[in-house]
Amino acid sequence: MMREKPILRVVSKNLIPPIMLFALYVQFHGDFGPGGGFQAGVIFASAFILQSLIIGVAEARRVARSALVRSLLAFGGILYIGVGFAAVAMGGNFLDYDALDPHDPVHGQHLGILLIELGVGITVATAMITIFFTFAGYEPLPSEPAPDPNREAPEREDLAQAVPPHEGRR
């Protein structure tokens, strides 16, 4: 996409690691300052979005494999609910973190909050990455042309010849 713009590329490449680091800071510092899983997830996803704006969605998808991203999407929610059931298994109510550490309820609260915020962060980050990749990588099939007000809708048979399959990629 922006291969021909070296300044944008170099600056963005150097920005991506600090963005990810800041996301982790927001994630794990949410107990003490503003922030938490939602904000951290969005910031973490924005690093991937920036990367795909520079090198293109297809290349960025090779880093964030869709199988991995979708697995993590489900894993975050499962982690959250799992903490809830862990509390039940240890004799408390659902999501009652006091039960996670029977000797020190405040420590149990810390552990529970850390884990569920991690679950929130993972799900939000992967959800944003998934949604962006789906939108940015979306190409209409040759059988459904992109809306173009200046062009009349061609007949179906004409279309197969007018737009050869996969020609729309470049």
Binding site: G30, F32, P34
Partner: peptide, 15 residues
């Protein structure tokens, strides 16, 4: 005392 997290927003939101 109950949650022990300095940011009250986090303790309300998460706990």
């Amino acid at each position: 005392e109950e949650v022990g997290v300095p940011n009250i927003v986090t303790s309300v939101l998460a706990s």
